[in-house]
Amino acid sequence: MNAVPPRCHALVPCAGSGSRAGTPGPKQYQFLAGQPLVRHTLAALVRVARIERVLVVAAPGDLTLRVADAPWDWADCGGATRAESVFNGLGRLRSDGVPDTDWVLVHDAARCLVTPALVDALIDACLPDAVGGLLALPLPDTLKSEVGGRAAATIERAGKWLAQTPQMFRLGTLHAALAAHAASGFAGITDEASAIERAGLRPLLVRGSAQNIKVTWPEDFALAEALLAARVKQSPAME
């Protein structure tokens, strides 16, 4: 019998409080262009034909996205940190019978401007790769180090990239890389690629988009809404 080729799954950690956004509740549920921010994120992911399943990892007891006939799956196994939520979500996929050889694309709930075309570009680049990789952008601006609120030095920006999501790795590889730091509360693990790097592997950098912003600060909501409105005006079917 021929082996079943590896499939792709998306995992969206959605258990954060979004404290930096200055919103009265979790930022992923704040309305943006007529619907909760995370709905824009999920709408893009479910339109990617090669993604077999989209799993949303919410905080325990959070039923916001547990919607009948939704094109995504839901699990309230989120943790205290993003890394813990991802780790728990990977465990849910494994317990559901997803093989370790399948690919998982972890994507921030607050990156609501991702497009199916960007996700497809990441999949195209990573499927033949031994490690996997992430969307990222070369650092465009001068980078400073700070001491006491003042610029202390200019850091060479050549070879430095801004990490984005999705980040795409094999289920078993990513689960093992995160498991190695579970006892420390995932200290120092800021994204999936950082866990993979600590395991001695080198993720592929796939050029993303400056529009694939993570809504983090209060002013980001207005920017994201303007970009969404511009896309609708240009083409209702735009990817």
Rank of each mutant, 00 (worst) to 15 (best):
P71A: 08
G78M: 07
D62K: 04
V98M: 13
V4Y: 00
G25H: 11
Y29H: 09
L45K: 01
P24M: 07
P99M: 12
P26C: 10
S85H: 15
V86P: 03
D62P: 06
L63F: 07
V4Q: 07
S17Q: 10
I51M: 01
A58S: 08
D102Q: 15
V86G: 01
G22Q: 00
R47Y: 00
S85I: 13
R53A: 03
N88A: 11
A33T: 07
N88G: 08
A83K: 15
D69F: 14
L11P: 14
W103K: 12
R47K: 05
A15T: 01
G61H: 05
L105E: 12
A70H: 10
E84I: 04
L32V: 04
Q30V: 11
V4K: 07
P36D: 10
Q35T: 03
L65T: 07
A15K: 02
V38S: 01
G97N: 10
D102N: 15
A15M: 00
R53S: 04
Q30M: 12
V54T: 05
D96R: 14
A10G: 00
T41W: 01
L93A: 02
A70P: 04
P6G: 01
G22C: 00
P24I: 11
P99E: 08
E84M: 11
S17N: 08
G25Q: 09
E52T: 05
W72I: 07
Y29N: 09
V48I: 03
T41P: 00
P6C: 02
V46T: 06
C8Y: 14
Q30P: 02
R92A: 13
A80G: 14
A83D: 10
G25Y: 09
L37W: 04
A68P: 10
Y29Q: 08
F87G: 03
G25W: 07
A75D: 05
R47S: 04
R50A: 07
A3E: 10
R92F: 05
R7P: 02
A43G: 06
N88M: 09
D96T: 08
D76Y: 04
A70Y: 05
L65C: 05
I51K: 01
Q35W: 03
W74M: 08
A75C: 10
G97V: 09
W103Y: 13
G25F: 11
V38E: 02
R82K: 15
V12M: 02
P26E: 09
R50Q: 07
V57S: 03
